[in-house]
């Protein structure tokens, strides 16, 4: 699975890194960012999907 964040749509709710802290992190301003290259291990896939579903701005994509 691969995840990405649309930086133009993210407004910094922070729910992705609260929901899936092994997949996402926060930057100094509170915007979400993808950890590593965005490749998600099978063990973190559920959290990644939940993070995408919980994003109020629909800025998080998790697919594959």
């Amino acid at each position: 699975m691969k995840v990405s964040i649309d930086r133009d749509t993210c407004t910094g709710h922070g729910l992705c890194y609260l929901t899936a802290p092994r997949v996402f992190s926060d930057d100094d301003e509170g915007y979400g960012r993808v950890l590593g290259d965005g490749e998600v291990s099978a063990g973190d896939a559920d959290d990644a999907l939940r993070a995408a579903a919980n994003c109020p701005e629909r800025a998080v994509t998790a697919s594959g």
Binding site: T11, H13, G14, L15, G30, R50, A53, N54, P56, E57
Partner: peptide, 20 residues
Amino acid sequence: RGDNPHVSFGIGVHRCLGSH
């Protein structure tokens, strides 16, 4: 609820600054 997206802190450019 696994998925619980809500808009209580607003969405878009005015998303609640103090939400955290």
